[in-house]
C-alpha cells in the first residue's frame, strides 16, 4: 500500500506543478540552478556545524509560502524517506562522545550535534528537491535539461517515461486488484505470482512500445522528437538568481544564528 501511495503522491505533485504562482512561472533553469546552489552550500557545512545551517530554512519557507505548497505534504514525504539517513546518522552520538557543553545538567556531545546537523541537512536538501518539482512542471524540467545540453536521448526518453508512468501504473494497479480479489490473506502474493504478473505487464509494455513507435512513424517520426522552447530568461529572473545565490554565500560565510545569539 505504501508504494501505491507514492504513486498518488506523484500525481499530487504533478497537479501542484501546474499552479500559477510567481515561483511556478520562473524559468526552470533558474530554479534548478538556485536549488543546486542551495543543496551544495548546505552540504558544504562541516560535520559538526549546526547553528549556521538554520538560516537556510529561509529558502524552503519562502517557496512553500509564496507557491502555496502544503507544508504537511512536504513534512510527510520527509518522514517517509528518512529511515536510511536516520539509520546512518544515529550512530554518531554513540561513537563520538566528546562533550561540548552542559545545559541544565544534560551533557551535549559533538556526536549529538553532528547527528542533528545531518538531520537538518536532510530536511533542507530533500525539501529543496521536492519544492523544485512541486513548482516546476515536468515538461519544464525536460525543457530546462535539454537547454542545459543534456543529451537528447536522455531527455526524450525521460519525457516518455513520465508520460507512461501514469498509464502503466494504472495497468499494474488493475492487475494487482485482480490478483488480490482472488487471493486470500498472504496466499497468492508470493514471488511466483509476482513473476507472472510482472512478466505479463512487461510483455504488454513491450507491445505498447511497438504501438507507440507505429504511432510516431505514422506522424512522420524519423529519429528526432521536437523539443519545446517556451521559456525565456528575463532580467527579473536573473535578479532572483543573484539574490538567492548571494544570500546562500552570505549565510555560508556568516553564522547568523551565532551573531544574533551573541547580541544577548
Amino acid at each position: 500500500m505504501e508504494i501505491a501511495n507514492s504513486f498518488f503522491n506523484l500525481g499530487y505533485l504533478d497537479s501542484l506543478s501546474y499552479k500559477k504562482s510567481f515561483i511556478h512561472r520562473l524559468d526552470p533553469r533558474i530554479k534548478t540552478i538556485v536549488t543546486l546552489t542551495f543543496v551544495v552550500t548546505v552540504v558544504s557545512f562541516p560535520q559538526k556545524e549546526l547553528s549556521g545551517l538554520l538560516s537556510f530554512f529561509i529558502y524552503p519557507v519562502f517557496i512553500i509560502a509564496l507557491a502555496e505548497i502544503p507544508l504537511g505534504f512536504i513534512l510527510k514525504k520527509l518522514v517517509i524517506v528518512s529511515p536510511f539517513v536516520l539509520m546512518v546518522a544515529i550512530f554518531n552520538p554513540f561513537l563520538d562522545k566528546t562533550p561540548v557543553m552542559e545545559l541544565y545538567g544534560i551533557t551535549i556531545t559533538t556526536g549529538w550535534i553532528s547527528f542533528l546537523s545531518i538531520i537538518v541537512k536532510f530536511i533542507l536538501t530533500i525539501s529543496a528537491a521536492l519544492l523544485l518539482i512541486a513548482t516546476t512542471s515536468f515538461v519544464g524540467i525536460c525543457e530546462g535539461l535539454s537547454r542545459m545540453r543534456v543529451p537528447e536521448v536522455f531527455v526524450v526518453q525521460l519525457m516518455l517515461l513520465y508520460r507512461y508512468i501514469f498509464v502503466l501504473v494504472e495497468e499494474a494497479l488493475r492487475m494487482v486488484r485482480a490478483r488480490d480479489s482472488r487471493s486470500f490473506g498472504k496466499k497468492g502474493r508470493g514471488i511466483k505470482t509476482f513473476i507472472n504478473l510482472a512478466g505479463i505487464l512487461l510483455v504488454r509494455t513491450i507491445h505498447r512500445a511497438d504501438r507507440i513507435y507505429s504511432a510516431m512513424l505514422s506522424r512522420g517520426y524519423s529519429g528526432t522528437i521536437p523539443q519545446k522552447r517556451t521559456h525565456r530568461i528575463r532580467t527579473k529572473e536573473v535578479f532572483y538568481l543573484i539574490i538567492w545565490v548571494g544570500l546562500f554565500i552570505l549565510f555560508r560565510k556568516y553564522n547568523l544564528s551565532l551573531a544574533i545569539g551573541q547580541l544577548f
Partner: peptide, 21 residues
C-alpha cells in the same frame, strides 16, 4: 488506444508533432 498515440508531454506539443515532422 489514444494512450499509445498521445506520447508527447502536452496536448499542444502532441498535435504539433506531425506538422513539425
Amino acid at each position: 488506444n489514444p494512450d499509445d498515440q498521445l506520447f508527447m508531454p502536452t496536448v499542444g506539443e502532441d498535435v504539433a508533432f506531425g506538422p513539425i515532422n
